[in-house]
Simulated assay, not measured.
Amino acid sequence: MAENSLFAILLRSRWWASAAIAALIALLAWALLPPDWKLAGALMGMPFVVIAVLAGWRQRHAPSAARVEQTGQVLRALAWPAFAELLEQAFRRDGHEVTRRDGAADFVLERKGRQMLVCARRWKSARAGLDTLRELQSAREAAGAADALYIGLGEFSEQAAAYARAQRIAVWQAAELAQALRGLLPPAR
């Protein structure tokens, strides 16, 4: 599916947006079509109902905007050893074997024979740059790892975001961290 197609955009949007479109189609069809065509016209909104269900299913455990903001505040206040320990706990809880390392990647995760390099030490940086992602990609290639993950709370430059997409480097920011660290975070101060 194309990234900017209507259905892709609706899958990333709140579930009720697709449900509203389906309801609008059904209402218009019921109001404007001849009696023999009303039901068929109303059913034309079914793809949007399916998208609403899929989006709702994906979003069922998504953290709220307030929770994402709180997570960002808590994580910005942590020192690297505490943050690294939280990440390690979360990765282990999700079934990964975790090895810490130095260099472009801070962790090597392994699950089911598949390796992932994780760069997280610069999580507080205000802006994620291209150089960090290039270093991570080089380390990934050198290690022969299948996946790479960059963790950071700062903004991504346009070039860095394009590079991450092109190299298939996963990016976790506040929303993904709120989900991954659920139940592990200390309370906000």
Rank of each mutant, 00 (worst) to 15 (best):
A162E: 12
L185S: 05
S5E: 08
L28G: 12
R58Y: 01
A161E: 14
W30D: 07
I25A: 01
G72C: 00
L185D: 08
P63E: 04
A161Y: 08
G152I: 00
S13W: 10
D102P: 05
W30C: 04
L39A: 14
S138Y: 13
R121M: 09
W16D: 01
R14Y: 09
R60N: 03
P35N: 03
Q59T: 04
A31R: 13
L24S: 13
R168A: 14
A105C: 10
Q173D: 11
A62P: 00
L43Y: 07
R60C: 05
D94C: 00
T71G: 04
A164L: 06
M46N: 08
Q89H: 10
Q70S: 12
P187L: 03
F107M: 07
G56M: 02
G41C: 03
E97H: 09
A55G: 01
P34E: 11
A161M: 08
V171F: 09
E155D: 14
A19D: 01
L86G: 05
L177A: 09
I21K: 02
C119M: 13
A178I: 10
L10H: 04
R92S: 10
Q59Y: 05
I25V: 15
E97V: 12
R189G: 15
A90E: 03
G72R: 05
A42C: 03
A65N: 00
A23F: 14
P81E: 02
D36A: 14
S157W: 02
E3K: 13
A188P: 10
F48T: 01
I51E: 06
P81T: 05
V171L: 15
R93L: 08
R58E: 07
A174L: 07
V171D: 01
R14K: 14
I9E: 06
A162T: 11
D131N: 15
E69Q: 13
L6T: 12
L181V: 09
G144S: 09
V53N: 00
G56D: 03
R111K: 15
W15N: 07
F91Q: 01
R93M: 02
V68L: 02
K112R: 14
A142P: 00
F91L: 03
P187R: 03
G183Q: 09
M44R: 06
S138L: 15
L11M: 13
A175T: 06
M1L: 12
A65E: 14
D147W: 12
H61T: 11
L130D: 09
L78R: 08
R134I: 15
H96M: 02
K124H: 13
F107C: 04
Q179M: 14
A79S: 09
L149Q: 05
E141G: 06
L184I: 06
A20P: 00
G56A: 06
R12G: 11
E88I: 04
A66E: 13
Q137Y: 13
L6N: 08
Q159T: 11
R114E: 14
L33H: 00
A180P: 02
R122Y: 11
G152F: 04
Q70H: 00
M116R: 15
P186C: 04
R101T: 10
S157G: 15
R76V: 04
